[in-house]
Structure formats: structure tokens, C-alpha cells
Design a protein around this nucleic acid. Sequence first.
DNA 1: GTCAAGCCGATTGTCTGACATTCTTGCAAT
DNA 2: ATTGCAAGAATGTCAGACAATCGGCTTGAC
Lengths: 223, 223
Amino acid sequence: MPPDLNLRISPRSVQRETVDKLRLAIFSGLFQPGSRLIESQLCTQLGISRPSLREALRSLEAERLIEIVPNRGPSIPALSWEVATAIYEVRELLEVEAAGRCASRISPEQLVELEKSLSAFEAAASSNDSLARVMTAADFYSIILANCGNPILEEVHRGLVARISFFRGRSMSLEGRAQSSLAEMREIFESIAAGDEKAAREASKQHVLKAKAAAKISMDSGL
Amino acid sequence: MPPDLNLRISPRSVQRETVDKLRLAIFSGLFQPGSRLIESQLCTQLGISRPSLREALRSLEAERLIEIVPNRGPSIPALSWEVATAIYEVRELLEVEAAGRCASRISPEQLVELEKSLSAFEAAASSNDSLARVMTAADFYSIILANCGNPILEEVHRGLVARISFFRGRSMSLEGRAQSSLAEMREIFESIAAGDEKAAREASKQHVLKAKAAAKISMDSGL
DNA sequence: GTCAAGCCGATTGTCTGACATTCTTGCAAT
DNA sequence: ATTGCAAGAATGTCAGACAATCGGCTTGAC
């Protein structure tokens, strides 16, 4: 009788679909920072009702991906360099810790996965698709964070990185940034593969610092 | 003409009021972990409509203070010790960093505030009001985090601490915990006052580790 | 011509009511 | 005791409505 063995791990709902769609739209830079989002427009574009949309917007607000100021509605926050710096600093804290832990506890299987994702980024780095570069790079970190043995570290990190997706997309387009990023990531990978916790921490730290510097350059030049 | 100089820094809205009320209710342990929240009940209790309530619930869901599983509705998540450990570990990372930065950059005025909050906790520690203890202790951290020079560090920390409010309330009720906690906090304060970054980090680390141990004890004994 | 006051459209905040879908629980039958 | 079913409860989602508020534009005064 059930021709579909649809194992419904998690039933999708309009609200969740909407959150995902909007989050992706924000990541891909579809909305300009500072621009306002009009509820009625989004409703018709997404084909959903206002209550559902508003629930989705509240979720995104709590994730700090949008701002909702009372009586003015939702908008894409303009990320100041000051806040971006603060995010990069915390990101450093988290990534360094994660890489260090990962070095001493990752499984051989996951290490293979990590190598694969590095290759994927290598391919993307040579291409012109800057969204693909950001995505594959995100996969790389994602695997490290997922294997550091602390799910909260992973969760917090994801939340922070989401907020600087704007910068990452731009800095990855910088001349030569993708290549040097690749070198830094390879350094991290080698350290983890060698089980060298100290080296992994150092490599990870350098990577974040360089990423931050690249973001600053792209910001100064771009605006 | 304006008899009310209502400086509307931030207009309150039903949604925000509701989020605050529910958050406070969760902090004070009004809901049992694992228990389900019934929308219609909350609506009548809070005197608001379902759409407004649902928006508030989505905010709290994104803060991880409640869980919403599709077609089953919202509930208070039961915090496993595994996750609690992960939270304490990240909290350590953040607090140590914050205390260290704070030691080398806090202003004299804020240092006075910090001392005041320590006194407030001292008073609460001698009382029987365990909610007051948690609150005043939270104020103490809050000042440190607010003066570490990184607003993101503060924001992330607040989010994490909120999720373990359950444990903190219980462990603060443990015999002698409040007093030793006071000693640890005083150690942190002295280090910061002396501008000794290294000592502040160490004291902060010890404090979190002790808090974690106390939480474990209260959990093992309590359930 | 510039600036202030006030009006108007656009947008949000909030509520009511409704209905289909899904979960839960209690009961009946094997 | 386990299974299956049926009634009730709760959620997911929508449509429509209306007041409050914001922003911009027009108007008017100096």
C-alpha cells in the first residue's frame, strides 16, 4: 500500500520552507543591505499568507539575519565594519578551538570527507562562481565544526558565519583571495590529518585573520 | 502640548512583550522541561491572539528556549547533560576571553558598577531567594561582557546562558555553592581591578569549571 | 525660496474566524 | 495484551479586516 516509503524525518512546513528560502536569498545577496522588505510583496512572491510570512520573519530576526523595527517592518541590516570585526574575532575564537579539538578526535572517514570538501573548494577556487566558492568553503568549515565534539560550538559558529555571508561573498571575489584561502585551508587540513592540535589551532587562526583582512579590503574598496 | 515626554526609544509591541514574558516564565522555571505549551491556553492566559503568540513562539524557538516540532507544537526542551556540557565549554571559551579583555580595558566607572553588582550578589548569596542569586550573578557577568569591547561576544554569551538558566537556578540552591561562587567572582573582580589579564582569565576559567561541576551535582542528585 | 505644518497613501500591528491536517487518547475487538 | 479505529484536541494555514504609525508630498506662511 505505501508505494512511497517517505520516511518523514521532519515534516516540512510553509514556515520552515519560507525561512530557508529567505535565508538563501539573503546569502546570495538578493537583497541589498539596508533595504526594506515589504510583507505584502514577499507574500505574493512566495505565494504564502501574511501570518506565515511574519512567523518566518521573526525566526530570521532572532537569527539576526534581518532587523525588524516596530512600525517600520523588516529590513536587511547594514553590517558595520565594527560589528563585522567583532564577529570575526569571535569566529576566530570558535574556529581555533574547533580545529584544535578536531585534530585529536576526527575519524578517518570524516577526514576523507574533509579532504573531499577541500578538493571541491579547489575546483571552485579556479572557477568564476563566487557563490560556489563560498558554499564549498562553508562545507569545509562545516565538517570541522561537526567533528569538534561540541554541537554548540557548531551551532554558534553557523549563526555567526551566516551574518557575514555578505562579506565572504565579496572577499572571495578578490583577486587571488581564493587561491591563498585554499593554501590556508590546506594548511589546516594537513595539521588535522597529522593530528597536530597546536598546528591546527595556529593554522586556523591565521586563516581567520587573513579572511578578516580580505574582508576589510573588499569593504574599503567596494564602498 | 505633550504632557507625556514619552521618549519612545523603542515602541513596545505585543509580540515583544510576549517574548519577554515567556522568556521570564521559562527562566523562573514556571514550565517543566519536556512539557508542552498549548497555544490556545497561552493565548487566553496572556490575553493575546494566536498570530501574535505564534510569532513570539518563533522568536523563542530561534533562541533555542523552546522547541517546535511540526504538527506537535511548542515544548520546553529537556536539556541533556551532554548538551549542557557543550554549553558550559563554549561559555568558558567566551567568558575567559571576555574577562581577559575586560581586565585591560574597563573604565573606572564601570569597575565601580562591577563592584556594586558583586555586593548585590553577596547580599543575595546570604538570602534564600535563589532567583535573586541567579539574577545578581547574571548582572555581574553582564557587566564584564559589556566591557570586553566585543558586542558579539556579549550577545552570544547571553544566548547560551539563557539556555542553562534551569541548571543555574538549581545549582545556586546547592548548599555552599553561593558562597564559593562569591569567592570565585571576587577573585575575578580583583584580577580585573588589578588589570591583570592573565589572572582574570584563569579566575574566570576556574569559575566556569566550578559552576559546571555544581550543575552536574545538582543534576545527578535532582533527577 | 526655504522651512514648517499638515494631510494622505503605504505599511505594519493585531485581531477574529475559519478549515484542513495531524496527533493523541480512549475504546472496542480479536 | 495488542491491534485497530474513531472521536476529540491541537496545530498549520489562510482570508479579511481595521486601527496605528510612518514617510513623503503638498500647501501655506514668512
